[in-house]
């Protein structure tokens, strides 16, 4: 709208002004707290719903352990803690790669961003392989959901998370394709920021899951 543009040009800028997206510099220094988180608002409601589900699951695990301390502590010793730690490193690194991708795209460096996304996808793939080996080991030993309460929780909780890693990777692959095509940039960060936020949520959940299930006794 020419009239609005004229108003923006004529108006005296002050710190409280919301910058027009087309006129905004690549990464404007914030003068005050932003009212909304990065990305689409809808993804944040989705993330909060996911966190609520995982939160209930974690609490259920912790209170189930309180009723079966000996069983949980004994069974925990049968888990591969090294694999759990390696998977933590992979998810944290994957999250760092995706954060670097968002930062690069924010500076209009799509090619760099795409490479960081690819690195994030590789970390996610590594997580799935390590977790797959862990599952194969447990299933090979004849362990299943009905083995005992601990394994019921271990398998269902980690598999619920596993599915989220897969969904996160599907999102990352989609972001990688679009970023390679230059679909995102400093003025259009919504898509990549939304996808990245979901991936960080998957990391955040594992940060609680690893000490709770693999270490705490």
């Amino acid at each position: 709208m020419p009239r609005n543009l004229g108003q923006i040009k004529a108006g005296r800028p002050h710190p409280g002004d919301t910058p027009d997206m087309d006129l905004a510099p690549p990464s404007p220094p914030p003068h005050g707290p932003a009212s909304a988180p990065p990305g689409d608002l809808a993804i944040w409601f989705f993330i909060l719903a996911e966190l609520l589900a995982f939160g209930v699951f974690f609490a259920a695990y912790a209170f189930a352990r309180a009723r079966n301390v000996e069983l949980f502590d004994t069974m925990q010793q049968t888990l591969d803690r090294q694999a759990g730690a390696l998977n933590t490193v992979l998810l944290i690194s994957g999250s760092a790669c995706v954060a670097r991708a968002v930062e690069a795209v924010g500076r209009a460096r799509s090619a760099t961003g795409a490479r960081w996304l690819l690195a994030g996808i590789a970390c996610g793939g590594g997580f799935l392989v390590v977790k797959g080996i862990e599952y194969a080991d447990k299933f090979g030993a004849g362990i299943n959901l009905s083995t005992n309460t601990f394994y019921m929780f271990y398998l269902s909780l980690t598999f619920f998370h596993f599915m989220h890693v897969i969904l996160g990777m599907v999102i990352l692959v989609a972001l990688w394709f679009k970023t390679r095509q230059g679909a995102y940039g400093p003025a259009d960060m919504n898509g990549i920021e939304s996808g990245a936020a979901y991936w960080h949520m998957v990391d955040l959940v594992w940060i609680v899951l690893f000490p709770l299930v693999y270490v705490m006794r």
Binding site: P30, P33, A34, S35, A36, P37, P38, S95, A96, V98, A99, V102, E193, A196, A197, H200, M201, D203, L204, I207
Partner: peptide
């Protein structure tokens, strides 16, 4: 992760 990777450091409380 919340503040720096998700980018909520500069977002409202």
């Amino acid at each position: 992760v919340v503040l720096d990777f998700m980018g909520l450091r500069g977002v409202k409380f």
